[in-house]
Design a protein around this nucleic acid. Sequence first.
DNA 1: ATTGACGCTACCGATTTGGTAGCGCATGGA
DNA 2: TCCATGCGCTACCAAATCGGTAGCGTCAAT
Lengths: 126, 126
Amino acid sequence: MASILPRPGQPVRGSKSGKPIMALFDLLGRTWALGAIWQLSRGAMTFRELQAACEGVSPTVLNRRLKELTASGLVERAERGYRLSDAGRDLFGLLHPLGGWSETWAARMAEQDAGQPRPGGQGETA
Amino acid sequence: MASILPRPGQPVRGSKSGKPIMALFDLLGRTWALGAIWQLSRGAMTFRELQAACEGVSPTVLNRRLKELTASGLVERAERGYRLSDAGRDLFGLLHPLGGWSETWAARMAEQDAGQPRPGGQGETA
DNA sequence: ATTGACGCTACCGATTTGGTAGCGCATGGA
DNA sequence: TCCATGCGCTACCAAATCGGTAGCGTCAAT
């Protein structure tokens, strides 16, 4: 496996300092890492249930994320599939407010778009 | 430019639903997006100062992130360089606790490694 | 024995990353 | 004026990651 498992105290992708916050950002800064945690916060799910909940993310990527999150102690195996560990639930507690914030953000962006239709729009319809 | 700008209400990389939280996760789930916000929370910085603060991230990536974060209203230009917008500071307020959490996480991981040196260790020294 | 669901892997094209070099511009001396 | 410095930023390219399809081996139930 080419990818490294981000761990605090170790150099990680994009950061050589090994600062915990940077290791965390590296871990979470991969596709569907945050999304998987978000979905798993609702309870244990099988691999394929989680895959469906994540809008059909490819098993390749999902499995990579699950391995990383498991190795990082945020996710663990359940009798049936996967679930957040204590640490994972703990982290989700901090992430949870982002849900509400993102709604506000969305409203603010929509408002801004209404006022100024972004003439040089970038790939919005791509 | 091939990359799309994640915006709530629009399909984004990895998510077709357009749910605000998924757009946010896409925006933040790119290398140095969270890191840049983290560094900028300390105040306005020039491009090159920020680059240095982010451990010498390549200007290519930094500029991409800055464009995305600016278009998303989280970052804005300052007289000298860049700074967090009100929304960006707002978001940082929610992200801030991750700093402390990551320290706890790091300690927990170190402890676990001490107890069990991870026989099948994965790329820890890579 | 067949069907179905499970977790997961191989394979591979498309996209993103991350690094070096250097551009055009502005400021500030000498 | 010429030169040096710092600014934001881009071109170019190799390496890594993403993301999609197909399908494996296992297990339980029919």
